[in-house]
């Protein structure tokens, strides 16, 4: 069993791949494999880590050509071909490098973002888009003394979107973002939708208008990679489809007048 790892730092002509023979342990994850690489092979390897329990979202990377959380992905399952996810093609898939999926695990940085070093990418753009959608609660009424009441029936749909951990796996798998890095992308749009459907919010359709731009709701081509790679089952496609429907209805209403 081998780990084949993308290596890059500023100053080298082009990225290289290091191959390292793994000593697998029971249940070993790709993150644990990277620690073994760091401890036994080359301690200059750079990768993000924190919770190691698939909740903090920092260790998303391209594993066997699929954006995943390294801490949630077990090496033996990968080698057995159990974790295959059929994805629509996007540029990172085409930049092929030889690798034998039966005995090697290919680990590369998350696509569509600039690589800083090895497996660490600059997430600024991803968070710029997140910030662009004004992800902050804006209630309409004055602050009450206690809690605002909410119908528990409204919670499940909201949770679909509040579950997002902002790992960027969707962004890295989106063919549209691959072609046009200025597209707001699935995570930012799903976040915007989360606030739109919050029954305590006041802004209604005005919220959706923030992304009523060519590079917002209207750029998605419904490849669906975002949903397939999401470690938390967030469905950006549903958000995008519903937002378009709402905006179209609004236009018709204005047109009627």
């Amino acid at each position: 069993m081998k780990l084949k790892v993308y290596r890059y730092y500023e100053g080298i002509e082009k990225p290289r791949y290091d191959t390292f023979k793994l000593e697998p342990t029971q249940g070993m994850t790709v993150l644990e494999a990277l620690f073994q690489f760091q401890q036994k092979f080359d301690d200059s390897i750079a990768f993000h880590y924190s919770c190691r329990g698939a909740v903090c979202g920092t260790c998303s990377m391209l594993i066997n050509k699929v954006p995943r959380l390294a801490c949630r992905t077990q090496v033996t399952s990968l080698l057995k071909g159990k974790l295959k996810i059929p994805l629509s093609p996007y540029p990172a898939l085409e930049e092929t490098v030889g690798w034998n999926p039966e005995e090697e695990i290919l680990v590369e940085p998350l696509p569509h973002l600039p690589v800083i070093r090895d497996l660490i990418v600059d997430m600024s753009k991803f968070f710029d888009f997140y910030k662009y959608v004004e992800p902050v609660f804006k209630p309409g009424d004055p602050t009450p003394e206690k809690e605002r009441h909410m119908d528990p029936a409204a919670i499940p749909e909201l949770e679909l979107y509040t579950n997002c951990i902002l790992c960027g796996a969707c962004f890295g798998s989106c063919p549209v973002d691959g072609n046009d890095p200025e597209y707001l992308g699935p995570a930012a749009l799903a976040k915007l939708y989360r606030f739109y459907i919050d029954p305590r919010e006041a802004n209604g359709i005005e919220r959706l208008k923030i992304a009523d731009i060519p590079l917002g709701w209207w750029d998605c081509e419904f490849y669906g990679n975002c949903r397939r790679v999401c470690p938390k089952d967030v469905p950006p496609l549903i958000a995008i489809a519903k937002a378009r429907e709402q905006l179209n209805q609004e236009r018709e209403k204005i047109g009627d007048k």
Binding site: K146, E147, R148, H149, M150, P152, F195, D198, R200
Partner: peptide, 21 residues
């Protein structure tokens, strides 16, 4: 403190009567 987070937008689980569970 719990109310304050609610006022900032935290989605708490709810009871049937709409209050925080």
């Amino acid at each position: 403190t719990v109310y304050e987070l609610e006022h900032m937008g935290t989605v708490w689980s709810r009871l049937e009567n709409g209050k925080i569970a």
